[in-house]
Design a protein around this nucleic acid. Structure first.
Length: 602
RNA sequence: GCCCACGUAGCUCAGGCGGUAGAGCAUUUCCUUGGUAAGGAAAAGGUCCCCGGUUCGAAUCCGGGCGUGGGCUCCA
């Protein structure tokens, strides 16, 4: 969270521009709403925002007026003037203006007696800068939306009105950005999920509980097969466990205490039985570990499951398939000795990298999430945390991976590595994660028999290599804009005859494809070819096989790929080509005529 | 949960300052047999999100819910 001081000596001219645009916004707002108090206004990715307390609420319909006032001020060529004041003088200045948020910042954030401020005409802001020379340097900006935001990111503090905007060096770049936003809208998984009939949400089922429609379920099945097969090949043992357990299990794990706000209320029966929908899979897997006495020879034991988790997320946080209240996690718990920990962490990272490569997750970065100093948030000793954090960092470093540290973002039982990815709107979210846990083994008194016959405590690694199926799906929809690689696409081929009299041949071609387990739809409607091709293209089907007199004659099929290129080929050759593409889970077909997934934004 | 916006046929949306609603696409039927992104016609389809209130009368105004979207907080 950018606050006073975050922008000191920032050398990035674009950031300077955007930060200056934020000042311009605040200057315009204070002119139009003299009693508005302003909070903070930093540059952010692609733009800027400023937080205000208005005496009466404003809405997006007020933005055009504010924006035109900004333009007026921009044209007025008002210089950004840097001044230094004494703490006393600055306090007096902001008190006179009734800017109590600024007074709070001076009191809490400014060290020493010198306070750096910027003046833009009548507008005065606590700020270290730097800024552009004059408001006139701000030539391309646009206000986007209003949103509520808690003062200093604390939901117990008052909620301010945040106005978001975007700013660019030139109008041309602003236009490009606006165009990007429009294109992102078209890739949005909520829109495509509906258009392509991949999933649905319905009030009667409930918020955050999407339905997987047949085509969406097909994609999920393919993903799950891929994931499970790969994990089996890497020595994971796949299990199946129920979605509920006795509440006591979660008391023992600590979730009932530390994770309560996200858990569904327990189901209580007349005989006193209390069952709980599980928010995580770990306790079930731990119980599996404990079904027999384990030897060091059994370790590492990698127990995996695509398990359903139930978390009652706050209503305002739900979003399509990306954030839901019931999801299936590609989860695994690795029980190992401390000596094996490093290799297991590396193995988990390697698996996540492999999944990313195959699925086309090309852009991501790592965050090492560590604990902060708030003692009662975390289980375990400082030493254990240090040790675990060091293991994760070392694993990443030894694999030559760069990472960022997120202080205070760990799980309550241990630090973790998160793989952060972006959606179509460049919003960041966690897709997969690797977490070290010294706590649960202790809470459940896990042990194994060591070489010398003594009982020892294993270490646990939690990892979600491909993340939650729902979130992964939302990512993939946006990544491919619905034009999934052939192996994932719900309909791999549409066969269409040029007229009804060739429908029999079309069906025959369909059968031959189906015999090779290719998902094919024979479009035998009495429609013109144009229409059938269009409908297949709208569905982003990878291959359209057209048949008519010529093809019946030669035993061929005329194939059009997504790029619109056409090739005439024997049916067997077509089957072989697609089969190979599917078997290798190719992202782009090998032949020169392309047809691969739509590229990423750019 | 909080802030702002939105909620009219399966979908995308018009309309309506109070007199129970329209289009295009999709669906169904009929006609059309057409070589690579929308052939033609007809029919059917709506408690205008829900519950209250004001009113002779509410989809429209007011209040309260619920849901969706964008943020905040949180997170796979």
């Amino acid at each position: 969270m950018a606050e006073y001081g975050d922008h000191e000596s920032s050398g990035d001219p674009l950031e300077t521009l955007r930060h200056s645009a934020a000042h311009l916004l605040a200057a315009a707002v204070t002119e139009l709403y003299p009693d508005a108090r302003y909070g903070i206004g930093p540059a952010v990715q692609d733009g800027f925002y400023y937080d205000f307390a208005f005496s009466k609420p404003i809405s997006e319909s007020d933005l055009p007026a504010i924006e035109s006032r900004m333009r007026k001020l921009a044209q007025a060529d008002i210089p950004f003037v840097h001044e230094t004041m004494s703490r006393e003088q600055a306090t007096e200045e902001f008190r006179r203006r009734g800017q109590d948020y600024k007074l709070e910042l001076i009191a809490d954030k400014v060290e020493g007696d010198e306070v750096s401020v910027y003046r833009t005409g009548d507008f005065l802001d606590l700020c270290r800068g730097p800024h552009v020379r004059s408001t006139r340097d701000l030539k391309a900006f646009k206000l986007l939306r209003v949103a509520g935001a808690y003062w200093r990111g604390d939901e117990k503090k008052p909620q301010l009105t945040r106005i978001y905007g975007t700013a660019w060096p030139t109008p041309r770049e602003l236009e490009d950005y606006v165009k990007f936003l429009e294109e992102a809208e078209l890739r949005d998984h909520k829109k495509l999920g509906k258009d392509l009939k991949l999933f649905a949400v319905d009030d009667r089922i409930g918020p955050g509980l999407p339905l997987w429609l047949p085509d969406g379920a097909t994609i999920r099945r393919e993903l799950e097969r891929f994931i499970v097969d790969e994990e089996l090949a890497r020595g994971y043992l796949h299990v199946r466990t129920p979605d509920v357990a006795r509440l006591d299990l979660f008391r023992q794990s600590g979730h009932a205490q530390l994770y309560k706000e996200y858990m569904y209320p327990p189901m209580t029966f007349e005989d006193g039985e209390q069952l709980e929908l599980r928010p995580v899979n770990c306790p079930h897997h731990i119980v599996i570990y404990q079904t027999e006495l384990r030897s060091y020879r059994d370790l590492p034991l990698r127990i995996a499951e695509i398990g359903n988790n139930w978390r009652y997320e706050r209503s305002g946080t739900l979003a399509g398939m990306n954030r839901v209240r019931s999801f299936a996690l590609n989860d695994a718990h690795i029980f190992c000795t401390p000596d094996q920990l490093m290799d297991e962490v590396k193995g988990a990272i390697d698996l996540a990298l492999y999944f990313s490569r195959v699925l086309g997750i090309d852009e991501f970065w790592y965050q090492l999430s560590t604990r902060d100093d708030v003692k009662d948030k975390w289980l375990g000793t400082e030493e254990q945390w240090q040790e675990a954090q060091a293991s994760l960092a070392e694993a990443l470093e030894s694999m030559g991976q760069q990472y960022r540290i997120g202080v205070g973002e760990a799980a309550f039982y241990g630090p973790k590595i998160d793989f952060q990815v972006y959606d179509a709107h460049r919003r960041e979210f966690t897709n997969s994660t690797v977490q070290v846990d010294f706590q649960l083994p202790q809470r459940f008194d896990l042990e194994y028999v060591a070489e010398d016959g003594s009982r020892k405590r294993p270490v646990m690694v939690h990892r979600g290599a491909a993340g939650a199926m729902e979130r992964l799906f939302s990512y993939l929809i946006e990544r491919y804009a619905g034009a999934f690689p052939t192996w994932l696409h719900p309909t791999q081929v549409v066969v269409a005859a040029v007229k009804d009299e060739f429908n029999d041949y079309a069906r025959e071609v369909g059968e031959r494809l189906r015999a090779s387990k290719i998902r094919v739809h024979v479009d035998h409607r009495s429609e013109r070819l144009d229409r059938k091709v269009r409908d297949a293209k709208v569905k982003k089907v990878p291959y359209i096989g057209v048949v008519g007199g010529k093809e019946v004659e030669s035993g061929h099929v005329n194939v059009q790929n997504r790029a619109g290129e056409k090739v005439d080929m024997a049916v067997d050759a077509f089957v072989d080509m697609i089969s190979a593409e599917i078997a290798e889970r190719r992202r782009t077909p090998p032949h020169s005529w392309g047809g691969g997934p739509t590229g990423q934004r750019g």
